[in-house]
Computed example of a mutant assay.
Amino acid sequence: MNIKILSRSANLYSTNALVQAAVKRKHNVQVIDPLNCDIVIEKQKPEIYYRGKKLDHVDAVIPRIGSSTTFYGTAVVRQFEMMNVFTTLKSQALLQSRDKLRSLQILSKAGLGLPKTVFTNYSKNVSEVISHVGGAPLIIKLLEGTQGLGVVLAETKTAAESVLDAFNGLQARVIVQEFISEAKGADIRVLVVDGEVVGAMKRQGKAGEFRSNLHRGGTATVIKLSREEEQAAIYAAKALKMGVAGVDLLQSNRGPLILEVNSSPGLEGIEKATGKDIAKTIIRYIERSL
């Protein structure tokens, strides 16, 4: 097969792992920077040129689109779809995953457990917003934030009011979520490929840090999911129509709660924690789909 990986850099761990997995399975693979693609739109003749060369005879693409390149990256994925090329991530799913509010609405409609969340149009009645999630402590998240950036833990009502007033003054869109204290600064990352859980790890934030992101000093250990947790992850990926998804969830007293679903989940942390070749699993998913 002829596989293209849409990534800004071939040196990234996840991109390189996918390249190596594809090569080992005897496929032709190329990393292309989506920002260097030119989209040609013509009646019944969609085309993509990469650095001046037409991309044709492509069997599959693996989008690894960063948040800063969502708009153009999505356009490139959509063009491949118009060319009837198989993609591990549909353009619509990519857009939905980057819209935190929209993805939470979809997950809620699907009946999945979520932390109680409030979104308003820069409401000046911040006390009411705080009360809707059960008061402080609470979490405030920028809608555009990624990898733990733009996430604030407000431990008191006064602190929450100050942060919300500041964000509202800057006209920064935020969501407010209840703080799940029993999670104790840990969450679970579940990798779902083609409707099956292929790896899971528990991420624990460093001392004094409520965010569990590994690049912020968190640690990861392999975890055996309960049946309820496994089903929640699978249903979340299905609800957002993702062939490959990184589902983040919290363990709470009322069962697993979905935090978010990542459309371009990193492979390094979970491969090291589980010892599994997730990249190979993704390539085999493509093979089964063609």
Rank of each mutant, 00 (worst) to 15 (best):
L112A: 10
K109R: 12
K141Y: 07
E128K: 06
M82W: 00
D165H: 14
I130L: 05
V133P: 00
L143F: 07
L143R: 07
L107F: 14
I140A: 02
G111D: 12
T146G: 07
Y122C: 03
E81Y: 06
K124V: 05
N125P: 01
L143I: 07
S131G: 03
Q79R: 09
V163D: 06
L142T: 08
T87M: 07
E81M: 06
L143Y: 04
V152A: 09
D99M: 09
D99P: 02
F80W: 02
L112Q: 11
R98T: 02
A110Q: 11
V77C: 05
L104W: 03
A136S: 06
L142F: 04
K100H: 01
V118T: 14
I106N: 10
R78E: 15
D165R: 13
L138D: 02
V151E: 05
G111A: 10
V133S: 01
K90C: 11
G148L: 12
G148V: 09
R78A: 15
P115K: 07
A166H: 10
A160R: 05
L107N: 13
F86Q: 10
V118F: 08
D165C: 12
T146C: 12
L104P: 04
G145I: 07
M83L: 14
G150H: 09
V152W: 13
A159C: 08
T146H: 11
Q92K: 13
N121G: 07
P137D: 04
Q92G: 06
L89R: 07
L138V: 02
K109A: 15
I106G: 11
V151I: 15
V77D: 01
L112H: 10
T117Q: 10
A136E: 00
D165L: 10
Q92A: 15
T158S: 14
K141D: 01
Q79P: 00
